[in-house]
Design a protein around this nucleic acid. Structure first.
Lengths: 150, 150
DNA sequence: GGAGACGACGAATTAAATTCGGTTTATCGA
DNA sequence: TCGATAAACCGAATTTAATTCGTCGTCTCC
C-alpha cells in the first residue's frame, strides 16, 4: 500500500463509479496498471465493496435516533442473544458494544416520531435482556461523511 | 417512485458498481429503460452518489469512538462556532446535535488509543465552547450496515 | 374515442473494461 | 557494483458495457 494506492482509494471513496480511464488520468498511470491496482485492493479486502448512497428523507427515513441500551447482567449469554436478535432489525443501521456507562449504542432510522415510538415499544424494548434504554433524537446533522480520512 | 425504483435502489445499495445490463436483468427491464430510471434517481437526488467502502483496519483506523460533547451556553453563536470548526476535522466521521442530556454526539475514527488521547486533548477539547466530553470506546461492532431499508 | 405524454423496447453507435505480450523499473543477493 | 528475478507498467487489440435514437405500446384526460 503506497501513495498511489491511497490516492486511488481517495478517488474511489469520493466517486465509486468513476471510470477506470478517468481514474487512471487522475493518478497519472495507464488504465491497465490502474485496473490492476484496484483489483488488488478489492481482493485484499481494503475495498469492501461499492454502494449507492441514498437520501434518507426521500425514502421516508427522515428521523435519526441514537439509543443507549443497558442489558440485564443475569446471564452470560444475554449479550449473545441481544446481538443476534438486533442484527435482523432493518431500522437498526448500526449497533456497537461500548465501554463507559452503558452496554450498547444503537443507531436507527425511522420515518417520524410516531414510527419511533412504535419501534421502541414494539421492537427494541422487547429484545432479549433489555433492561433500560435512553433515546437521543438527532435534531441536526452537523457532519455525516462516510469517507475515511486516507 | 414505484416498486421498480425501490428494487433498483436495493441493488445499487448492495453493489454500486453493478453494470446496467446486470441490473436490468435483475429488475426485468431493458437496459435502456433501466438506465433512464437510474439517471432520474440520480438527478432527483434520491441517489446522492456512489462510494467505495473501505476496511478501517487496513487503513490504520482501527479504533472507533463516540464522544458526547456539552457546550458552554454563554453565547448564542457558540453552537455555530463549534459546528463550523468540527466539520473540518478529518477524524470526525459524523457529528449530530441531539436532544436529551447533552449537546452533540461525535463519531470519530483513529489508529489506536494513543492517537485518541492525542486527538481528544489536542483537538476536540480545544474546539470553541467545549465544556465537557464523555468518551465511549467501541469494543465490538455488532452491526454496521450503511444500507437503508427500502 | 382520440390526442398527448410517458415509458419501454431494440438496434446502432460510442465508450469503457479487460486481456496480453513485451518492456521498464525496482529489489536483493552475490 | 553487478546481474538475476520479480513486480509493475505500458500500448494495442479485443470484449463488453453505456448511451443514443427512432419507434411502438399504454395510460390518462379530455
Amino acid at each position: 500500500m503506497d501513495d498511489i494506492d491511497r490516492r486511488i482509494l481517495r478517488f474511489l471513496q469520493k466517486d465509486g463509479r468513476i471510470t477506470n480511464i478517468d481514474l487512471s488520468r487522475q493518478i497519472h498511470l495507464s488504465p491497465a496498471a490502474t485496473l490492476e491496482r484496484v483489483k488488488k485492493l478489492e481482493q485484499s479486502g481494503v475495498i469492501r465493496g461499492y454502494m449507492a448512497r441514498l437520501d434518507p428523507e426521500t425514502v421516508n427515513l427522515g428521523l435519526l435516533v441514537f439509543i443507549q441500551v443497558t442489558l440485564d447482567r443475569t446471564s452470560p449469554d444475554i449479550f449473545e442473544a441481544f446481538s443476534k436478535a438486533l442484527k435482523t432489525i432493518p431500522q437498526v443501521s448500526e449497533c456497537y458494544m461500548v465501554a463507559g456507562g452503558f452496554d450498547y449504542l444503537v443507531k436507527a432510522r425511522v420515518k417520524d416520531m410516531t414510527a419511533y415510538r412504535n419501534f421502541l415499544g414494539k421492537t427494541l424494548t422487547r429484545l432479549p435482556g433489555v433492561r433500560q434504554t435512553h433515546t437521543y433524537t438527532v435534531m441536526e446533522e452537523v457532519k455525516a461523511d462516510p469517507e475515511l480520512p486516507i
